[in-house]
């Protein structure tokens, strides 16, 4: 399997950006973005689809951390 070339990469990134914009606009509801999801999956190798989905989660988590700061989880209650 050959790696995507420059044009294929750009097509994939474009489809990814369109899908992400749609998901942002619809508060992560997948229903209204189905056509974008299909276009994204057909424009990118399956491995990249998986990678970008994880990456979106990571970037959202990162933004959340930046905006709200990190609150450490409460540890187990110590019995005295």
């Amino acid at each position: 399997m050959t790696a995507p070339n420059s044009a294929e990469r750009k097509a994939c990134w474009g489809a990814r950006d369109d899908l992400w914009r749609c998901l942002d606009d619809h508060h992560d509801q997948t229903g209204p973005c189905e056509s974008f999801q299909k276009l994204f999956e057909s424009s990118c190798p399956a491995q990249w689809v998986q990678y970008f989905s994880k990456r979106r989660d990571f970037l959202k988590y990162k933004d959340k951390m930046k905006a709200e700061g990190f609150t450490p989880a409460e540890g187990p209650k110590q019995t005295s």
């Binding site: 399997m1 190798p45 399956a46 491995q47 998986q50 990678y51």
Partner: peptide
Amino acid sequence: KDEDGDYI
């Protein structure tokens, strides 16, 4: 590797 043999 996935079913295509692709990996990151």
